[in-house]
Simulated assay, not measured.
Amino acid sequence: MQSIIKDGQIVQDGWQILRADAEGQYPAVAPDVDVIVPLSQWLADKAGWQARPGRTAVWLAPADDPQLLAADLAALPLVAVDFPAFTDGRGYSLGRLLRERYSYAGELRALGDVWVDLLHYLWQVGFNAFEIKDGKAIDSALSGYDTFTERYQSTHREPLPLFRRRVTSL
């Protein structure tokens, strides 16, 4: 089991992420294992994934359309967004869309090339779980929540921009 950050705590995680190998083949998964499958696999056999004894969640690639998952969101315990590269910010938009447009209330996990530098911003757009990149210290990653004390722009967690908050506090 690996450790992740969830809701500001380091916890053990039992979910297995299903990724294709170099030949594009997906590994077999035991029926009772909790698994996070790519959107394409979910859409190809939704009924099969739902019938498993283990829980099934879905992960989105940066180019995936979250609207394809909208009808299933209420039944999913977890949705993950893949950040294949530190410099690829499309996942921020996916996270915010899932929370604000599609009202997803379950666990929203960032996975892939996730570093402590991203944690504060990911938290602000709605992510509540983080799989820190291998080789990065998860203990020190908790400090990422407190990188900044104030934000100028509106976010999922702070819907009013700073200038609106200052006017209401005077």
Score class of each variant (00 low, 15 high):
Tyr26Ala: 01
Pro38Phe: 11
Arg52Leu: 01
Gln67Glu: 12
Ile36Asp: 11
Ala51Thr: 03
Gly48Phe: 02
Gln67Val: 11
Gln50Ser: 11
Val29Lys: 00
Asp34Trp: 08
Gly48Glu: 03
Val33Thr: 13
Ala63Glu: 15
Ala71His: 11
Gly24Cys: 03
Trp59Asp: 05
Ala47Ser: 14
Ala28Ser: 14
Glu23Trp: 03
Trp59Lys: 06
Ala30Leu: 06
Ala61Thr: 01
Pro38His: 09
Pro66Gly: 10
Val33Trp: 06
Asp34Leu: 01
Leu60Lys: 08
Gln25Gly: 05
Asp72Arg: 07
Glu23Ala: 14
Pro27Trp: 00
Gly48Gln: 01
Gly54Asp: 09
Val35Gln: 06
Trp42Pro: 09
Ala70Lys: 14
Val58Ala: 09
Pro38Thr: 13
Val58Trp: 11
Ala61Lys: 12
Pro31Cys: 02
Gln25Ala: 15
Ala71Leu: 06
Pro53Phe: 04
Val29Glu: 01
Asp64Val: 03
Glu23Gln: 15
Ser40Cys: 12
Gln50Phe: 02
Ala22Met: 08
Asp64Asn: 12
Pro66Cys: 14
Lys46Leu: 10
Trp42Asn: 09
Arg52Asp: 02
Ala71Asp: 14
Gln67Tyr: 10
Ala57Leu: 11
Leu69Ser: 02
Ala47Val: 10
Ala61Ser: 15
Gly54Glu: 02
Ala47Pro: 01
Ala44Cys: 08
Leu43Asp: 14
Ala71Met: 04
Asp64Glu: 06
Asp45Arg: 14
Ala22Lys: 13
Leu69Tyr: 13
Ala61Ile: 00
Ala51Pro: 00
Asp45Met: 10
Gly54Asn: 08
Leu43Met: 13
Pro38Lys: 11
Ala28Leu: 09
Ala70Asn: 05
Ala51Leu: 04
Leu68Thr: 02
Thr56Phe: 04
Gly24Lys: 01
Lys46Ala: 14
Ala70Asp: 08
Asp65Phe: 00
Gly24Ser: 04
Arg55Gln: 15
Asp32Trp: 01
Ala44Met: 08
Asp72Ser: 15
Arg52Ser: 02
Pro38Leu: 08
Arg55Thr: 03
Gln50Glu: 15
Gln25Ile: 03
Gly24Glu: 03
Thr56Gly: 05
Pro62Trp: 03
Lys46Gly: 06
Gln67Gly: 07
Tyr26Ser: 02
Pro66Tyr: 12
Leu39Asp: 09
Gln50Asp: 04
Ser40Arg: 10
Asp64Thr: 09
Val58Phe: 13
Ala22Trp: 03
Pro66Met: 09
Asp64Gln: 07
Leu43Pro: 04
Leu43Thr: 07
Ala28His: 05
Val35His: 11
Ala47Phe: 02
Asp45Asn: 15
Leu73Tyr: 06
